[in-house]
Design a protein around this nucleic acid. Structure first.
Lengths: 220, 220, 220, 220
DNA sequence: TATGAATGAGCTTTCATTCAT
DNA sequence: TATGAATGAAAGCTCATTCAT
C-alpha cells in the first residue's frame, strides 16, 4: 500500500535520511560555522558523500531552507502550546514564552545554535538575510492556518501590548522595544552556551522570566 | 624627522590608509555578508585593488582581526568613559552603560552591524569563534593596563554584582544571567536596525535603560 | 515459443522499449542539445527513470551509438530504395537521392536534427568523432551484405562519377567535391529547420534537386 | 603614456594573452569537442591554469562569445572585402564569396573547425543555440555601421536575389534555397577537412565556385 | 524489469595568496 | 606603495555509473 509507505510524498526511509542530513547539517554549521559548512563536510558528518546529500535536496540552499523551517516549526509548536496553556494573564504568558523558549534551547542545543549561526551568517543566493527569506517562506500560501498561527506566536509584540492594555504591565512600556530586548536576551542563551558549555539554559530561563516580570509588571 | 611621522611604527599616511581599509571592509561586510566580503570587493570599496589591501595587512585574517579590535577599542573607550562619569551608583552606571552602548551603535552604524555579522560569521583559520579569539587577544601581555581596563568595562557582571551587593539592586538577581540578558538585548539593536532601517537605537536605548532599571532596582 | 517472441535475441517488448528510449533520447538531444541530454532527462522523456534506461543499454555511449545507427539505417534504407527505383540515369538517381533525403528529413524531423546535433557534439570515450566511429561500425564484419550495400548508397561519389563517365554530367565535374557540396547542402536543411520552424524541407529538396541538375548536367 | 600602452581599454600584453587564450580554446574545442573543452584543458593548452584563463575572461561563456565574435569578424572582413572588389556582376560576386570563404577556411583551419563545432555544440546558459545568441550580439547597438555591413555581407540571399533580378541568374532560382544550399556546401569543407587531413579547401572552393556558376547562371 | 540510493569524477566559479614589476 | 598576473584550493553542482532490492 502506497499510503503506508508514504507521507507527504516521501517514503519513510527517505524521510529518515532527510532527518539525518538535517541533523548533520546543523551539527556541522554549529561546529564550523555556516561559511565552512560545505556539502562534503555535511556528507562526512553523516557518513555519506556530497552526492548523497544532493540526492535528497536539490541544492544547498534548499537544504538550509528545510533546516531552518524544520527548527522553526518544531520550536514554534512547543512555544505556542506553552503560551496557550498559560492562560490569559499577560504575565503568565510572557513567563511561559520565555521558559518554553529556553526549554527548547536546552533540549535542542544544536538546533538552537545553528539557528543563531544562520540568522547572521546565511545569505540567500541573491544576497538576502535569513529574516527576509523567512518572511517569504512564511507567506507561502501553501502554509496552513495553524502553522501560520504557531509561527505568529513567536512574535512578542502583541503579547506585551496585551499586557500594557490590560493594565497588567506598566503603561510606559514600549511593546516594540521590550519585544526586541527580550528576543535578544532569549537568543543570547544559544551563543552564550556555545562558548560556555557549563551554561544552564533553563536556569537562565527562570532568571530571565523573573527579570522580565519585574521589568514589565506594574508596581502595585 | 622620523619620530614625528611615526606612531607605533606606522607613518601617518600608512595609518590613514589602514583606517580607510578597515572602514571599507566594515562596509562591505555589512552590505554583502562576511562570506561574500572578498578582498577584491573590499579593495573596490576604497577605490583600490586586492593587492593594495594586502600590502597593508599580511592576510585577510589579520585584516578582520584588526577591524574587530579597532571597533571594540573605540566602543570600549567611549562606554568605559560614560560609565566612569556616571558616578558610583550602580543604577546610574548601568543606565550609562546601556545608553552609551546604543549611542555608539547609533553613531557607528556600520561598525556595529559589522561586529554582529562577524560575531557569528567569522572563524579563525583553526576554527575558533570570534569570542574565543578575542579572549586570546585581550590576554596579549603586550596590551597596556588602561586598554585592559577599558575592555574589561564591557563586562556587565561586576557592575550588576556591585548593585546587588550595595543593596541598590534586588538581592535575588543573578548577575551572570542579568549580564547575559542585557548584553543580548543591547546587541539585538544592531541586527534589528539592519533589517529595519527605521529603527532608532537611541530611543531603544532609553527604553531599555528604563526596562533594566525596573528589572533590577529593589522596590522601595 | 521463444522463437516467436524473439528476434535477434530480444523479445518484442524489449524491442519496443528500446525504440521508445531511442525516440526519447533523440527528442531530448534536439531540445536541449547533446551536452544537456542526461540520462535522467531521457528517462523522464519516456516516463521512466535513469535506471530504466540503463537497463536496456549498457551505458550512455551505447545508447547514442544505437540511436545513430538506427537513424542511419532507417534513412539509408529509404534512400537506397528511392535511388534504386530511379533507374539507371545518373541525373534521375541524383534527383531521387536528394528528394529522398529531404523527404526523410521532413518525415523524421527529430531524428534528422538529432543527427546534426550528434555529428559534431558526440565524441566517443576515446575522443573520436561520430564519422570516425561510424566508419568502424560499418566495417563490423557482423554486418550483412545488404546492410552494407544500403549504407554505401549514402555515398554520393560513385553516383556522380557514374554520371561523369556516362557523359550525362559535365566532364569537368570533380565527383569528390560535388559529393561533399551536395551532402553539405542536404544536411544544411536540418539545422536550417531547427532555427526556422517555417522551413519546408521538401520544397527545399525540389529546389536543391533542380539546382544540382543544372550544376551537373552537360549542356546539350 | 597610457595611450601608447592601451587600445580599447586593454594593454597590449593583456590583448596578447587574450589572443593566446582564444587560440588555445579554438584548438581544444576542435581537438576534443566543445563538450570536453574544459577550462583546465584550455589552460593547459596555453601552458597556463584554469585560473589564468578566468583572470582574462569573466566566465567560460564570455570566452566562447569572444572567440566566436573574433572569428566571425575576421572572416567577415576578408569575405566582405573580396565580394566588394569583385565588382557588380552577381556571378563574379558569388564566385568571390565562395573563394574567399574557402580561402579563409584554408588559412584559418582551426578557427573554421571551431566555428562548426560550436555552431551545433554550443548552448548558452539559458539553452539557446549559437545562431540565436549571435543574432543578439550582432544587434548590439554598440556595434559600428561598418561592422554591421561586413557581417551582413555573409548573407547570401541578397547576393543571389540580385543575380536573379538582373537576369544574370536563372529566373526560377529560389534565393533562399540557393543561399541555404551554398552555405551548407561551404561549411561542409571544415568538417570534411577535420576527418580528412588531405582535403584541399581552396581546390574545393574552385570546384564549388564552378558548380555554383553552372547551377545559377542563365543558359545563354 | 525496473527504481532508489549513493558515489565520485569532473565541471564552472570564487577567492586568498604569491610574486614580479 | 601599489597593481597586474597567475595559481590552486575549495566550493556547489551535474551526471554517468554501480548496486541492492
Amino acid at each position: 500500500m502506497q499510503s503506508e509507505k508514504r507521507l507527504t510524498g516521501l517514503t519513510f526511509i527517505e524521510q529518515a535520511r532527510r532527518r539525518q542530513i538535517l541533523d548533520g547539517a546543523a551539527q556541522v554549521i554549529v561546529e564550523l560555522g555556516y561559511a565552512n559548512a560545505s556539502l562534503v563536510r555535511i556528507g562526512e558528518a553523516i557518513g555519506s558523500s556530497k552526492g548523497g546529500v544532493l540526492y535528497h535536496f536539490p541544492d544547498k540552499n534548499a537544504l538550509v531552507g528545510a533546516l531552518v523551517l524544520d527548527i522553526y516549526q518544531r520550536g514554534a509548536a512547543t512555544i505556542a502550546a506553552a503560551v496557550r496553556e498559560a492562560g490569559d494573564s499577560a504575565g503568565a504568558r510572557l513567563r511561559a514564552y520565555i521558559l518554553a523558549n529556553l526549554a527548547f534551547t536546552a533540549s535542542h542545543r544544536i538546533e538552537a545554535m545553528a539557528l543563531v549561526e544562520l540568522s547572521s551568517g546565511y545569505r540567500s543566493p541573491d544576497g538576502r538575510r535569513l529574516d527576509e527569506v523567512m518572511r517569504h517562506w512564511l507567506e507561502d500560501p501553501g502554509r496552513s492556518t495553524e502553522e501560520r498561527a504557531e509561527l505568529a506566536a513567536l512574535d512578542l509584540v502583541p503579547l506585551v501590548r496585551q499586557g500594557v492594555e490590560s493594565g497588567e504591565f506598566r503603561a510606559s512600556l514600549d511593546p516594540d522595544s521590550v519585544a526586541t530586548a527580550l528576543r535578544g536576551a532569549v537568543d543570547a542563551a544559544a551563543s552564550r552556551w556555545a562558548r560556555d558549555p557549563g551554561f544552564d539554559p533553563e536556569a537562565y530561563g527562570r532568571e530571565l522570566a523573573d527579570f522580565a516580570d519585574h521589568a514589565c509588571r506594574r508596581v502595585r
